[in-house]
């Protein structure tokens, strides 16, 4: 098992989540292979890498949606149990919109998080305002555009004030203005104290948002560290090739 890569400098917050030798194997293939890294609190970390590198799978393993074949996920110094998972939230690449109105989707999440009925209406209003969807409260959520669905999914995920928000390519297939709106929302979430972990294969997005970066290649962690350094002076061959727009094959 490798030593966890300290991707955040020690002068920032403590480690919120750590993976130790995280491995996921199926049909003899290691889709995530011995990944050890630390994510510290209050930062935006992007997980980068080419298609098929295992980025989305790593996010699901970290969130506890899939059990690893071996290795551990340590949350705030303890194992990833139910209360730990409740302190995390995830937004999927294709946001899951329930067959309800925009407000109905928010009300459901508020109910699940135990918000009393009398307090829900005000919170729905506040969340709609945050997402800029005030005029769409009664519209079926599945009829929203891709960008609107992502914004709704993000504010829905912030219900219950999670300590960590994970986003799986939240701006894939979005136009520039929708991408900007989603990125602004993600930065707002971080400003309010939530640690953000975001999968992307968009270099520009990593430059705009990331404070820390982890780069995956073929399921393995190639490199991790502060975004400012890694995005300009990468040490690993896979990340150099990726930044140069070249194809890297193991």
């Amino acid at each position: 098992m490798r030593e966890p890569a300290n991707i955040i400098r020690a002068d920032f917050g403590g480690t919120l989540l750590e993976t130790r030798g995280l491995t996921y194997r199926a049909d003899g293939t290691r889709f995530v292979d011995d990944v050890s890294l630390r994510l510290r609190e209050g930062r935006i970390t992007t997980i980068l890498g080419p298609n098929g590198a295992g980025k989305s799978l790593l996010l699901r393993l970290i969130h506890g949606l899939i059990a690893p074949t071996s290795g551990d996920v340590i949350w705030n110094g303890r194992s990833l149990d139910a209360p730990a998972r409740a302190a995390q939230a995830m937004v999927f690449q294709r946001p899951v919109m329930m067959r309800r109105s925009v407000a109905g989707n928010l009300r459901f999440a508020l109910k699940v998080k135990g918000v009393p009925r009398h307090a829900r209406a005000a919170q729905v209003e506040a969340l709609l305002t945050k997402a800029g969807l005030q005029d769409m409260a009664t519209r079926p959520a599945r009829l929203l555009s891709g960008g609107e669905q992502q914004k709704l999914a993000i504010v829905r995920a912030t219900i219950g004030a999670p300590r960590m928000l994970m986003l799986d390519e939240p701006t894939a297939n979005l136009d520039p203005s929708a991408t900007r709106a989603v990125e602004t929302l993600v930065q707002d979430v971080q400003t309010q104290g939530t640690t953000v972990v975001m999968v992307t294969h968009d270099q520009g997005q990593a430059k705009r948002l990331a404070q820390d970066v982890a780069f995956l290649q073929s399921g393995r962690l190639a490199e991790a560290g502060p975004a400012a350094r890694l995005l300009t002076e990468p040490q690993s061959r896979p990340m150099k090739a990726w930044l140069d727009g070249e194809l890297y094959v193991d």
Binding site: R60, H63, Q88, A89, M90, F92, V96, A109
Partner: peptide
């Protein structure tokens, strides 16, 4: 379709 979202939300 909903399974992962529901698990994520608890």
């Amino acid at each position: 379709e909903y399974r992962e979202q529901f698990r994520s939300m608890g």
